[in-house]
Design a protein around this nucleic acid. Structure first.
Lengths: 205, 205
DNA sequence: GCAAATTAATGATTTATTCAAG
DNA sequence: CTTGAATAAATCATTAATTTGC
């Protein structure tokens, strides 16, 4: 009965509490160092990774907004005049394609809101300088590719998985020629890179 | 007089060409290792980071779709019958919400294709099993928050900076440093390697 | 010809939507 | 049904094209 490493993070009550507290405090979109910090703190209460923190804030923010939107949407049932006015005014073509867009104006408003908030809590914090200076390390454990149902859908590409610390500038990738490999030079590599097979299958029409 | 490190990546013609070729070949959403490879290869032609590659594909895919959508949108003014038929036939619930989803099947196909490709040049690691084993460290340098115009918009949160390279596995990236005339005119075998056969029309006329 | 001023492309972020585990 | 995870759409911001007046 090993823990069997469930495929997704399950926040402990403590973690959740802290996260919510942080959110209440005003943190909406933590940056790298903030995430690092939070993760470190929360890791005391249980297993957790940076991406969990990241996603949590993303989702929480989004859903919070969603609720708010709904609530407001109901409240302002009668003020739709404005709505229509607005709609009629600055409308992109794409809205044609999204007839189910409930409240485009709301969305717009939210953008602004968003900006406002971030600047708000950033200003008060004023403590990013310190963070900004240093380098941080992250241990990235390979994300346990879920092959559970792999047979069906092949596998998922988690393209987010790679997004990270690309600043690997130090990167030894820098062509370690020293060994023989050179001979082939780039053309060959290129070849490897490009499976010219198939190629067809354009997404067109 | 340093180059002053422009704030955003500017692909060299070679890099661009290769990327486009890859795209044409079918790569839409490269995974971690693919991005690694591509980045390594392209780094020979100029400064480049993984995230550039990632973003490039994201944007290219999106804008390609955009164009296509527009085009089709015009073309299919009268063919909406088919659409409806299709929609009615193999429909997930979500398609209700996205009546404007033109080619869900295409998307699917690409995933498969993509997978095929990756396995093609990742075959040496015999799949993902090998990769999954280890943990890796990455140095995360705080991304040099651009404060250039900070006073106006405070700062940007680059939350993407942290997400990255989860999968990084065996990293077979063998670059060739080689001492050829790198400076300006690289031969760019790659180009020659790819018969730019235009069986598929250019994106838009 | 050549810069300042505009516009078009496109790299980089942020937000909204969807998928699927529990 | 809730929510972590992933993807796609929309948006912002900067660079390259280009126009324009001189």
């Amino acid at each position: 009965m090993s823990p069997a490493a469930s495929s997704r993070w399950c926040p402990t009550p403590e973690q959740l509490m802290i996260l919510e507290e942080l959110y209440r405090t005003g943190i909406r979109t933590p940056n790298a160092s903030q995430i690092q910090h939070i993760t470190a703190q929360l890791s005391f209460y249980g297993k957790i990774e940076g991406k969990n923190v990241f996603y949590w804030f993303q989702n929480h923010k989004a859903r919070d907004r969603q609720k708010l939107r709904r609530k407001l949407g109901n409240q302002l049932q009668q003020q739709q005049q404005q709505q229509q006015l607005y709609n009629h005014h600055n409308l992109h073509q794409l809205q044609q394609n999204h007839p189910n867009y409930f409240e485009p104006p709301a969305a717009c408003a939210f953008h602004q809101l968003s900006h406002h908030h971030s600047s708000t809590f950033l200003s008060h914090e004023g403590g990013l300088e310190g963070a900004r200076a240093a380098n941080y390390r992250w241990k990235l454990e390979i994300p346990e590719i879920r092959e559970s149902n792999a047979e069906k859908s092949m596998m998922m590409y988690e393209q987010h998985d790679w997004m990270m610390l690309m600043n690997v500038s130090s990167l030894p990738i820098q062509c370690s020629s020293n060994s023989s490999t050179i001979t082939t030079a780039r053309p060959l590599k290129t070849l490897e890179l490009f499976p010219l097979t198939a190629t067809n299958l354009k997404e067109e029409e």
